[in-house]
């Protein structure tokens, strides 16, 4: 029987090695492509009708659009509209990665810290650059609370700096931890079913609501990941 951690194993599908670099096309990469392809296909098919009175599928796609649009309006403000395409792509990508991971036997790309950290780091660097280009040197006032006495800068600036730098870490660890813990839990409980024989019905009954909860978490974490990106964008645009 497969161990609970085997599902996170990275296996190369097409081995590519350039010099010392291992650039293999792995199962992780394959499922990222699946997330991108799946979301493109889903949104493309849903919107193919483009009716004024939407069909069920079209209203599903429009619902996702509205969720993201509301998120940006509430958390960033009207200046955030320019960043809608990026935030929308981010939300749909994370959502599809999480949900495709819920298909039995598939691989969850977001259960690897390096994947979520790469996403969070890209957002962090991007948002910081937006802040610097918008405000120039005034951006540095983000690290010093307005109105504090100048001599407190020796304590406050390092603290604020570390607090700011911890953002991509907390953003990525949250998504990664939630996805990993959920999948390990599902696997462990599913393992009990095989071990307990006839009494396996009990963990099986428990597994059904747990799977539903896991799907809920997959959607919720995609939402939280995106909403926090919006909050960071707001800080860069408005400097508190």
């Amino acid at each position: 029987m497969a161990g609970p951690l085997e599902q996170f194993e990275i296996k190369p599908i097409i081995a590519i090695e350039i010099g010392a670099l291992d650039l293999s096309f792995t199962n992780s990469a394959a499922f990222m492509v699946a997330a991108v392809g799946g979301s493109a296909l889903f949104l493309g098919l849903c919107m193919s009708g483009r009716a004024l009175v939407p069909t069920r599928w079209q209203s599903l796609a429009e619902m996702i659009y509205e969720v993201v649009a509301n998120m940006i309006r509430d958390n960033v403000g009207s200046e955030g509209r320019a960043y809608f395409p990026f935030i929308f792509t981010l939300f749909v990508f994370v959502l599809f990665s999480n949900l495709i991971g819920m298909v039995p036997g598939s691989f969850t790309t977001t259960s690897h810290l390096i994947v979520t950290f790469a996403l969070a780091a890209a957002i962090f660097v991007g948002v910081t650059l937006i802040g610097i280009f918008r405000h120039g040197l005034k951006f540095l006032s983000l690290f010093f609370p307005h109105g504090a006495p100048w001599w407190t800068a020796f304590i406050l600036v390092p603290v604020e700096l570390v607090s700011y730098l911890s953002r991509p870490v907390s953003l990525s660890v949250r998504l990664f931890a939630n996805m990993t813990v959920g999948h390990v839990l599902l696997k462990v409980i599913a393992g009990f079913i095989a071990l307990l024989g006839i009494f396996g019905a009990l963990p099986f009954l428990f597994l059904i609501p747990l799977t539903a909860l896991e799907i809920g978490i997959a959607v919720l974490q995609a939402y939280i990941f995106t909403i926090l990106s919006c909050v960071y964008l707001h800080d860069a645009l408005h400097l508190h």
């Binding site: 570390v162 607090s163 730098l165 911890s166 953002r167 870490v169 907390s170 660890v173 949250r174 939280i224």
Partner: peptide
Amino acid sequence: RVAVELVAAVLV
């Protein structure tokens, strides 16, 4: 969120 926040800044 609180738990992650608490760990992240110490790690950084």
